[in-house]
Simulated scan of single mutants.
Amino acid sequence: MRILDKYILKKYLSSFTLVLTLLIPIAIAIDVSEKVDKFLRHANLSVGEIIEDYYVNFVIIYGNTFMPLALFIAVIFFTSKLAGNTEVIAIHSAKISFTRFLKPYFIGATIVTVFALTMNHFVVPRSNKIFENFNRTYLKKKKLNANFITNVNLQLGPNDYIFIKNYTVDRSIGYNFSYEIFEDNKLSQKLMADNIRWVEEDSTYTLINYSKRFLFKDRDSIVHGNKLDTIFNFEPKDLVNIDYMAKEMNSVELYKYINQAKERGVSNLNSYLVEFHKRSSLPISSYILTFLAVALAAKKKRGGMGVNLAIGITLMFVYVFFLKISEVLGAGADTNSFVMVWIPNLIFGGLAFYLYLKNAKN
C-alpha cells in the first residue's frame, strides 16, 4: 500500500469515527431530555440499569442507524478539505487516475461494510431485544402483556389452521381451541377443545373436553372425549405474535422462521423479508455513499466545503426518504420485498456511477 493510500485511508476512518462520535452524544442528550421524567417515575430503577440496559443498547442501535449518514458526511468533509488544499490536483498531476484515487476509499468502505454487516445481522438484534424489553417495561404508557395472548390464528400448512381464543405463555395453556382441515376449500375435519396444554417432556399436546367432527358428503360424524394426547406441527413459541420480534431475532433465527412459515403456507411474509434484506442493503450502501461523496467533493468548488456539505446532506435526506418509502411499500402483500428494499441503493448507485464516469473522463 502506498503512502498516499495509507494517508487517505487514515483520514477516511478517523473522520468517520469522529463524525459518528459527535452524532451519538447529541442523540443521547436529546433522548435523556425526553425520557428523564419517565425514568424518575420508577423508584426501583437504578442509574446502572438505565445505562446498561437502555443507553448501552441505545448507542449500538442508533450508532448503527447513523453509520451511513456519518460516513457520507465524513467522506465529503475530508475529501472537500483535500480538494480545497489542492491535494487532489497534486494527485492527478502525479498521473494518478480518478479510479486509482478511489482505491483507499474502497478499502475503507469494505472495512465499514464488514463491520456494519456483523452489527446488523448479529449484534443489533440482541440489543433491540434488551432495548425494547426495557421500553415495554418502563417507558411505554400502555404496557404489553406478553404473557397473555388473545385470538391466536396460525396456519400450519396449505390447508390446516388452528385458532385459540386465549393463550397463557408461561403456563403453555390455551383456551377455546379449534383445529380445522380443508379439502378443495371446504371444511373436512374440525377438532375442538375447551383447552390445550403443551407437555414439554413428550413434545405433545393434551386436549381437555374435546370433540372431533368429520364432514362427509351425506353426513357428519362427531366423536367426544374428556382427554386426548396428540401432536401438532407447531410449538408454543410459534403462537406468540412476533411482528415486533422480527427486529429482535438475529438473521439466522429470522431466516429459519421465514422458511418455516413458508412451509406452513403463510402467504404474506414481506414484513419479515424487508427486515431480513434491509440488514444487508444498508451496510452495502457504504460503497455507494462513499463513491458518491468522493465524486461530489473531489473538485474544488466556489463556496468550498459548505456547498459540498449542503448538497451531500440534501442527498442523504433524499436517500433516507427513499429508504423509508421502500420499506413501507416492500411490506405490502403484492410487492417484491427484495427489489423494494434495494431500490434506493440502485437509484443512488446509478447516480454514483454517473458521477464517477464524469470525474474519470476529466
Results as ranks from 00 to 15, higher is better:
Tyr7Ser: 04
Tyr7Ile: 07
Thr21Asp: 00
Ile26Gln: 01
Lys35Ser: 06
Phe39Tyr: 15
Asn44Phe: 04
Asn44Asp: 14
Asn44Val: 03
Ile51His: 08
Tyr55Phe: 15
Tyr55Asp: 06
Tyr62Ile: 01
Gly63Met: 10
Thr65His: 06
Thr65Gln: 02
Ala70Tyr: 03
Ile73Cys: 04
Ile73Gly: 06
Ala74Met: 05
Val75Met: 05
Ser80Pro: 02
Ala83Lys: 07
Thr86Asn: 09
Ile89Lys: 08
Ala94Asp: 05
Lys95Ile: 02
Ala109Thr: 01
Ile111Cys: 06
Val114Glu: 06
Phe115Tyr: 15
Thr118Tyr: 15
His121Ala: 13
Pro125Leu: 10
Asn128Phe: 15
Leu139His: 04
Lys141Met: 02
Leu144Met: 05
Asn145Ala: 09
Val152Leu: 04
Asn153Leu: 11
Phe163His: 13
Thr168Tyr: 15
Ile173Cys: 04
Ile173Lys: 13
Gly174Glu: 03
Asn176Val: 01
Glu180Arg: 15
Glu183Cys: 06
Glu183Ile: 12
Lys190Gly: 01
Leu191Asp: 00
Ile196Leu: 13
Asp202His: 07
Tyr205Ser: 03
Leu207Gly: 08
Ile208Ser: 14
Ile208Trp: 04
Arg219Gln: 14
His224Lys: 08
Lys227Met: 10
Phe232Ile: 03
Pro236Tyr: 07
Leu239Trp: 11
Asp243Met: 02
Met249Leu: 10
Ser251Phe: 10
Leu254Lys: 11
Tyr255Asn: 13
Tyr255Pro: 04
Lys256Tyr: 05
Lys256Asp: 14
Asn259Ser: 05
Gln260Phe: 06
Gln260Arg: 12
Gln260Ala: 10
Ile284Gln: 03
Ala293Ser: 15
Lys301Ala: 08
Lys301Arg: 12
Arg302Pro: 01
Leu309Ala: 10
Ala310Asn: 08
Ile313Val: 13
Phe317Asn: 10
Ile325Asp: 05
Glu327Trp: 01
Leu329Lys: 10
Gly332Cys: 01
Phe338Lys: 09
Met340Cys: 14
Leu346Glu: 00
Phe348Asp: 05
Gly349Val: 06
Gly349Tyr: 03
Gly350Met: 06
Phe353Lys: 03
Lys358Tyr: 13
Asn359Ser: 12
Asn359Trp: 01
Ala360Met: 02
